[in-house]
Design a protein around this nucleic acid. Structure first.
Length: 561
RNA sequence: GCGCCUGUAGCUCAGCUGGAUAGAGCGCUGCCCUCCGAAGGCAGAGGUCGGGGGUUCGAAUCCCUUCGGGCGCGCCA
């Protein structure tokens, strides 16, 4: 039996339900309307209380009085109401048409008790039964992951984490674009590097990949096969170099993702999609539905019927399927096996959205697909922009970024902005161990709490963790922090519903900020035992929420730094 | 030219899907450690929410228009 006695009816959301029902009853009595809408919102300014409703504005029209009058009258009805449980509310007052509500400290105390009881589970839901397919980061297996993909990976993994917390079944996947002309270019570039070991002037092919990352791979081939390929004809070495390079690069991409805290449930080879016959079968399905036609020897998808600006080729006139054709097949599969399918694409894939949406529409899954663009990154070093011209071969890899600023800073910065917002990423700032750096501000909050626990008596911390006593929480800073912590489940929900990972990083900062304010205004290790335990309890809850939100973002929560 | 994204404080950005006097960080000015981590806190200055129309009791948010910025418009991926 836990000594924590959370009064379920006195949790903030229960109090709000009670309030909403009471307002609804009052409106029906006053305006003779049924099933009134009672929107509840969180006011920006603290003096307006914890919550407010604008319900009086709607009723004002019906009863033909001014909103302030209506609000005042509603409050009178509420005071007399038999529906309202008065002990849950510290204040209910009309203000310019709004009705502001301040909950009794007891509600917030109960919320803290619940967080202490639920611990890591606070903010998580049981299984929703919803299956979500989330594809992000997919790339050509022709080189290492670069910075902009790091952002896509951060966004994708953070969303996946948040969805899991909401109880959804999330399936993360990556497509390996190992089919197409770029694979031959890879093989030829790799071969050139192989030849350069004995002949430094051997030229890279026209339009080849100039990056030095191919050199060690070429060396690996030489270590295994010696000079065997030096005099072989292209028809012999090409398939080998293609497969060797592809396998090696995919393995490196996966290693980088893993190092970055990003896990994929499935790596899908595009080549395999073709070889298994799935592409063919799914294209046939489109044809049967009459969404394709042949012209000039090629097979076209009637994309314009679904809002795209031109029709698109699925199968080229030489019989080879386009990337798009394969993707049609893959999306059909994903839409079949999930309730909701999400693609996160790089900034250079704007033009692809309409096409992929068109396919979902044609296959009868129009509202089941969301396509998100992870916008570009401009790397900064202080005021200086870091050049990342791919043409010149000076790419900046994700590994280099991790080496320089660490996983924590990169993961946090990459989700600070809305995905469709271009991001300026300042390497100097990300490395800075100061309050200029938002990652450190949040982590510092977590570490600072840990430090307080070290100074406290162990038995006090244990008692506080059981929620021994929380009645002393009443200082505005204490209640503000408790109120903030109570938001966590709703923040996770909003993150998922709006596909907005930046909500989590903003929220993390707000929790840290509210904790720091509480810390300076209220001494935690007070003489008075009840006060001390209450504040320790609040601190434990705050630390838990900080750890949880940082965990969703993929950032560590240090106990000292 | 067409399509998508975007324009909010000197800078970087929030703004919870239409609510109250538009917020935060950095930078700037001035304060707060005999006391749990000052990597912190408090106060102040700083805004025609690109411009113009419209819808609404109410608009940064929705609609139209206009100007500026980014990206995309292959039988490439």
């Amino acid at each position: 039996m836990s000594p924590t006695t959370t009064e379920e009816f006195a949790l903030p959301e229960r109090a709000l339900e009670n309030f909403g029902a009471a307002v609804r009853a009052a409106i029906e009595e006053y305006g003779r309307v049924t099933s009134a809408d009672v929107p509840i919102e969180a006011p920006r300014r603290p003096e307006f209380g914890d919550f407010a409703t604008s319900a009086a504005f709607g009723l004002a029209k019906i009863v033909k009085k001014s909103p302030p009058e209506v609000a005042a009258h509603l409050v009178q009805l509420l005071q007399k109401s038999g529906v309202l449980r008065h002990e849950l509310f510290a204040a209910i007052e009309p203000a310019g048409g709004f009705i502001n509500v301040r909950l009794a400290p007891r509600c917030w105390q109960n919320s803290v008790a619940r967080i202490l009881r639920e611990g890591k589970e606070f903010g998580r839901c049981g299984p929703s039964g919803k299956r979500i397919s989330l594809e992000f980061g997919s790339a050509n297996p022709t080189g290492p992951l670069v910075v902009v993909q790091g952002r896509t990976l951060s966004i994708g993994q953070t969303l996946a984490n948040a969805m899991q917390a909401r109880g959804h079944f999330v399936f993360t996947e990556w497509i390996i674009n190992d089919e197409g002309a770029q694979m031959e270019t890879l093989a030829r570039s790799l071969y050139a590097r192989y030849r350069q070991a004995t002949n430094p002037s051997y030229p890279l092919p026209e339009g080849g990949y100039p990056g030095e990352y191919l050199i060690p791979i070429a060396r690996a081939i030489r270590d295994a096969d010696g000079e065997r390929w030096e005099s072989a004809p292209e028809s012999e070495w090409l398939p080998h170099f293609m497969k060797f390079g592809r396998d090696r690069i995919v393995a490196e991409q996966e290693a980088t993702a893993k190092r970055f805290g990003v896990h994929y449930d499935h790596w899908q080879s595009e080549k395999e999609l073709h070889e298994s016959g799935r592409v063919k079968a799914d294209l046939e399905r489109l044809r049967e539905r009459g969404y394709t036609y042949e012209q000039e020897g090629a097979l076209w998808f009637k994309a314009t019927r679904f809002g795209d600006d031109k029709d698109r080729v699925l199968v080229r006139s030489d019989g080879r399927t386009t990337y798009y054709g394969a993707d049609v097949a893959y999306h059909y599969e994903k839409l079949q096996r999930s309730d909701y399918t999400i693609d996160i694409l790089g900034p250079d894939h704007h033009g692809y959205i309409g096409r992929i949406r068109g396919v979902a529409d044609a296959l009868g899954h129009k509202d089941q697909l969301d396509v998100l663009i992870s916008q570009q990154i401009t790397l900064m070093r202080g005021r200086e922009q870091v050049s990342m011209s791919k043409r010149a071969g000076n790419i900046v890899t994700l590994d280099e970024i991790i080496d320089e600023v660490g996983v924590d800073a990169a993961r946090f910065f990459f989700v600070m902005l809305a995905p469709d917002q271009p991001l300026k990423f300042d390497l100097e700032l990300a490395k800075e161990q100061s309050n200029n750096n938002p990652v450190f501000y949040v982590q510092y909050g977590h570490a600072r709490i840990a430090s307080v626990f070290k100074n406290a008596a162990a038995s006090d911390v244990d008692d506080a963790a059981r929620g021994a006593t929380l009645e002393k929480l009443e200082h505005p800073a204490e209640l503000a922090l408790a109120r903030r912590l109570d938001e966590f489940p709703r923040v996770v929900a909003a993150t998922v519903e709006q596909l907005a990972p930046q909500r989590l990083s903003h929220y993390a900062r707000e929790v840290a900020s509210d904790f720091h304010q509480f810390y300076t205004h209220c001494r935690i290790l007070e003489q008075d035992r009840d006060t001390r335990l209450a504040r320790l309890g609040l601190s434990i809850a705050a630390q838990q929420v900080l750890a949880s939100v940082l965990g969703l973002i993929g950032v560590s929560a240090p106990t000292s730094m």
